[in-house]
Amino acid sequence: MSLRDVAIVGVYATEQGRSLPHRTSLDLAQEAVFGAIADAGLQSSDVDGVAADWPGPGGEPGEGASWARALGGPVSWVSDSLLDTSGARGVLKAASAIDAGLCDVAVVGGGMAGMFGPGASVGPGMEPCEFTDVWGGYVVPLFALVAAEHMHRFGTTPEQLATVAATIRNNGSTNPEAVMFGKGPYTAADILASPMLASPLHRLDVCLTGEGGAAVVLTSLERARDLPHVPVSILGGAMEAAGGAYVLPPSYSEVGRLGERAAARAFRLAGIAPTDVDVLSLYDPNSFEIIRQLEVLGYCTEGEGGQYVTDHSIGLDGPHPVNPDGGCLSYAWNGTQQMTLKVIECVRQLRGTAVHQIADPQITLAANAGSAAGHYEIAVLGKG
């Protein structure tokens, strides 16, 4: 077997919101996990691999094996590190476990409520960071440091960042599932007119915080062909890490090209070129990160990402649409499960069930995290 012999067969996204006071993290995680299992046409007892959040109460919070009783029996494989339970990283690790024969059906996902809500912001992490906290280095200014250096080196303009933000936000403004549904349409001028948070990032350049859940189910491609949906195969993938997330103030010199090696590996394993990808579902904590990722993924050379988004539409009518669902900028950011939402959008596009459906996509790409976070994961997906 190989990763190509593993498929995503079930997906589920809960409601998403700036604040969900009527929900709990465990409630959202269970809805997402059991929803994805049902979408796959399977029973909970079929699942013997778990990389999913267990927030508690009950069981042991943070321990993936706590799902065993809820699923109806013992499980054969668990992974419960924070980022192993979501997105491309979780999918790649679960697929590797299935490929190795450690389990047959795995679920990746979870949920979060009661952490942020309106007006809240995201810090560097749950634990104190001695070299960033003292300077007020929460996530937005840390990413802003990388963006500012790129602009200084290559002449990237605020208008180019604003073009990215307006495009992705407008996708979300017409997506009924999006937290920012009905907010818009926006122009680049609207983005630039919003308050500055951390130069060069305006408020509308930056994603919102929110709450919600998401999950995906994987199994062998052979078994997937007997299930209700068109199997979505894992054509390739890769991970790259520059160190612990947010532990030091980042510079472009250190993390500006983060993801380049992972992209080369992922495309090599998939046997494709970047231009073969029909839809890009990229992490968008801010508008600049999309420009940076287009460069490291190979859609343009270093320093030309700003010009690329000016000359080539990244909208729904472009050659490689970016975040048709509205991304983190407009659809949802819900803790680590926003990474799973990136995978879900890719799967929906390949199934033909996306809200903003691109015509007949064959290959999609989900990418998580970026420069200031210090890690990057990619999953290249295609119809099985």
Rank of each mutant, 00 (worst) to 15 (best):
L3Q: 12
V9W: 08
G10D: 06
V11P: 04
A13I: 10
G17C: 07
G17T: 06
A36L: 00
G49I: 04
A51V: 06
A52K: 07
D53A: 14
P55S: 04
P55E: 06
E60Y: 14
A65T: 14
R69Y: 09
A70G: 00
A70W: 14
V75H: 00
S79E: 12
D80H: 15
L92M: 11
L102K: 12
A113L: 02
C129K: 15
W135I: 10
G137P: 07
V139M: 15
A147K: 08
A148F: 12
H150I: 01
A166P: 01
K183E: 13
Y186M: 11
G210T: 00
G213F: 07
E222Q: 15
E240I: 01
G243L: 06
V247E: 14
L248D: 14
E254Q: 15
G256D: 09
G256L: 04
A262R: 03
G271C: 06
A273S: 14
P274K: 11
V277Y: 00
Y283H: 14
S287P: 03
I291W: 08
I291Y: 02
G306C: 03
S313Y: 11
I314R: 01
L316W: 12
V322E: 06
V322S: 06
N323H: 03
N323F: 04
S330N: 00
W333V: 03
K342M: 12
Q349N: 04
T364Q: 01
L365I: 08
G370Q: 06
G374F: 07
G382F: 02
